[in-house]
Design a protein around this nucleic acid. Structure first.
Lengths: 201, 201
DNA sequence: CCACCGGTGTAACAGTGTTACAGAGCAACC
DNA sequence: GGTTGCTCTGTAACACTGTTACACCGGTGG
């Protein structure tokens, strides 16, 4: 009957998630790993939902402050976006975690404060600034989510394959680049810069 | 012992999903609704995964062709994006469906062909064109997913609330617009147009 | 000593996807 | 007609899941 604490529960849960993904985390497995009965977990944590919430909070907090580089407002915002993307990609389990809990969490990343700061520094005020912040966060979060989802995407249905074969006769390089992104970072920076330039212009 | 077919199974499953969401669709409920045993469903459909796959295919096929308006390439691509967004928002269950199955499906929407057409018509070739198509689809899909997720987002943690209160002293309108997007369509079109102008420029 | 309380364990409930197996009904062939 | 074979359905189970009612144990305060 080793005593456990809320922290040891979260630690072990985090370890299990990092080892085999959120989809393989169950209360019973967690209890077994802790050498304890399920009820203890419920006593300390309360719920599976709050457990996952706590894990998300941990990962986001652990991401720490994002770096802001560049002299012009556009470059500074782009660097925020880039740093955010890098930090998310460094934590593969975060995407699974967030996808189970809801994508809302991605919007309260540390990046949000930095973005607000930069937008107001660039002269944007009120709803205009708020929308700009959201637009950038939408783009970053959406891009990274899809990027990781498509990374390990399964085989495509015959109809799509057929279409691509037909397309390949006209432009083989195009057809090929549609199946896998060659340089995600370049595309990402390109997209974000385009958006930000328009928002701040 | 009423005989069922693969189509009646999919029809009923679709109805159940539209009524109470994908998260409330179970093989047993579906069987009960059909007045049949679970094994029959497995015989006709095979699996829960392929069932959901079929549902996604149905919804996407049902979306039909997307409309392309505008005279300039930029306006035509923007109209594709806008039409895609509208069609997705018109089908609330699609987001849940796609979120359970994986976001990959969103990338083979009818829009893909139309985008390829427009990009090549605008003079883009090879990897450049492929990346442009993907960039637009990333932005559209990411935007809509997050838009719907944030729509019914729960209360935020105290820390975030506190920060917003502090922010509200400087710029109340900004703080307010950060919690809910006032005009999603305007922000969407703004973002997409910015991206497309840069991609085609 | 005894009562309380934080923490744990047992065992169950209700639900999930999935399948081994036994049949029913029907068509085709000998 | 009898028999075989195929399609489809039903029973019952396996191995899970999250969650909880309830009993219990160990220590601390009165």
């Amino acid at each position: 009957m080793d005593r456990i604490t809320r922290d040891t529960v979260l630690d072990t849960a985090m370890r299990l998630v990092m080892e085999s993904g959120i989809e393989n985390l169950s209360m019973r497995k967690l209890a077994a790993e802790l050498g304890v009965a399920v009820t203890s977990i419920y006593w300390h944590v309360g719920n599976r939902d709050v457990l996952v919430d706590q894990l998300v909070d941990r990962v986001i907090a652990e991401m720490g402050a994002i770096s802001v580089d560049g002299s012009t407002p556009v470059e500074r915002v782009v660097s925020i976006a880039r740093s955010t993307r890098r930090k998310i990609l460094e934590r593969p389990h975060l995407v699974g975690l967030v996808r189970e809990r809801g994508l809302e969490s991605l919007m309260m990343l540390p990046a949000r404060k930095a973005l607000v700061h930069e937008m107001t520094a660039a002269g944007l005020r009120g709803a205009r600034a708020g929308e700009a912040v959201q637009a950038v966060q939408y783009q970053v979060a959406g891009f990274v989510m899809l990027e990781r989802a498509l990374e390990n995407s399964a085989a495509e249905p015959p109809a799509v394959d057929e279409w691509r074969a037909e397309l390949a006769r006209d432009d083989a390089e195009l057809a090929d680049s549609l199946s896998n992104v060659t340089d995600g970072d370049r595309l990402f920076v390109l997209s974000v810069r385009a958006l930000v330039e328009s928002l701040l212009g």
